[in-house]
Each structure stands twice: as C-alpha cells, then as structure tokens.
Amino acid sequence: MNLNFLEFEQPIAELEAKIEELRHVGDDNDLNISEEVARLEAKSESLTASIFSNLSPWQVAQLARHPQRPYTLDYLKMIFTEFEELHGDRAYADDKAIVGGVARFEGRPVVVIGHQKGRDTRDKVYRNFGMARPEGYRKALRLMEMADRFRLPIVTFIDTPGAYPGIGAEERGQSEAIAHNLREMAGLRVPIVCTVIGEGGSGGALAIGVGDAVLMLGYATYSVISPEGCASILWKSAEKAPEAATAMGITAPRLRELGLIDAVVEEPLGGAHRDPALMADRLQQALSSQLEQLVEMPIDQLLERRYRRLMAYGAPQG
C-alpha cells in the first residue's frame, strides 16, 4: 500500500506503481514502452477524475487532513513576498500552532495569520498538530490589532483540528481567548479575508475566521465538531464518522449552498498536494479578486456589511 495515497485512491496508486515499473524497464530497452506508459498515464488521469468526481464527505475529510497537503507556510512562500514572521502574545508564550506576520500580497502590505501543522513527527509535535492554545489566539489578535492600526488588510488561513484541549490551555482561558477574538474581529477597521485551506475545526478555526469574505479550498472541510467527535456523541460510536460527516454537511460545495461561505476555490485533480503550484495560483487569484473589492469599500460601509453578514447566519428569514 502506497502511503502517499488514501485508501479510496488505491486503484490510482496501483496504476501509478505499474507506470513507475514500466518506466524503469524502459530505461534498458524498447520503444513501445513509452506508448504503453502514455496509455496508462491517460488511464490513471481518467480514473482519478472519476474517483474524485464522486467523493463522499468522509473521503473529503481525509483529503483535508492529507499529510502532504500544503500548509500556511507553503502558501506564504508561493503567494506572498517579504514575509516577516512576528512572534508571541506578549504575555505568556509564542504558540507555534499559529504563525503570523507582515508580508506583501501582489505588492500590497498585509498581515497574514494562519494555523500551521507539521510535516514530520517532530515538526508535528513542535506545531502541536495545528491545535492552538490561548496564547496562539492572543498572538493572532495582537497582530490583527496591529493591522487595524496600520490599515493593513488581514488574510487568514484556517487549518486546525480544533483548539487544544489541555489542562494549561484551560487554566489560561481558552474560552476567553476565542471569544475575545470573535468580538474584536467583528469590529476591526480593515478588510479581512479568511480561507479554510484544510481542516476547519470548530471554535479553534472560527477564532481566526470572522471576516468580510470566507473562502474554502475545494477539499477543505469546516465543521462545528470533528466527524469522529460527532459520531461518538450522537451515534455512540466513532466508527460512524462517515455518517456524521454526511449529516453535518462539512464540505465546501455544501456550505456554499447553505450560504455559510462565499466561494469555493477549486483544487487541482487529485487534491492540492498533487499540484501545490497550481493550487497556490488559483488561491492567489481568488484572494486578489476579494481584496480588490474590499479595499475599495468605505470602512464604515464595510463594517456594516460585515455585521449584517454575521447577523444573517441562521436568521429566520435569511
């Protein structure tokens, strides 16, 4: 089993393995092989297209958590220039699960904030699996307030299983830190564009997710609780996670339909990790068109619009 591929992608993995094998043989002899390789490659592509055209929400959840998926710092490298990372909440610590700083987006200075996950085991632990503690949310707020002072638009990237459920996090006021961000983000006097690039896990995601435009990558998810968590509470069995994923409607197209997000940024065939450069390109275009509109808007009008949007969530007539 090829670990670069998820379970439902195994037929693709097998084809890819065959192609690889043929190429290897092809080094030694024969011409027909290149034809065969081309044929198999075409087949692999159409197989991928057919598998990906019909993914279940649970399969999308697997993709959103794919270990090779581009993370915040990857997009920072591909889309932004002159990134200067800023650290710490000025009160307790620097939370590595959230990164942030100033950077240029298409030449325009902005503040960028995002959850950061780790790639290998050590890095994962260093980043606490992208699960922030209160100091992470407080660092984010400090940077957002700075953005407000210097009139820099804010771009956030959401990718977290959720806020960290630990003893220290509770002692230092996890709830208060999240709540505080929600209240302050509603009133920041600069445009805010939020994008869910992977997992949008509950309050820990929303704590940097209140804005003027909320985007999602095609295979990102956004939900009030993880499918496993929901399943173990409502079905009394974590194995019902696929059912929970479907019932909650965690995928980008579904949430767009419900009017809870503004736009879906399509991913390359097979997911963002199959072609990070193409993904970054599309994300840049999406961010660019959102920011262009938002920076033109008079700030009081923008704030009123943000407030109306928030009040419309689940409102009886909306």
């Binding site: 929600l182 009030v224 909650m248 809870l260 943000r306 928030l310 969530y313 689940g314």
Partner: peptide, 26 residues
Amino acid sequence: GARMQEALISLMQMAKTSAALARMRE
C-alpha cells in the same frame, strides 16, 4: 456548547452573538 444537529450554522452563532455584544460595548 454549540448544537451539533445544526452543524456549522450553530458554530456561526458564536460569531453572531459575539458581534452583537461588540455593539453593546461600543
């Protein structure tokens, strides 16, 4: 906490109620 049966709609109530309280504060 949030009501799971309303999924993301209930998560957004956190943002909604907090934004309303920001106006009280103002």
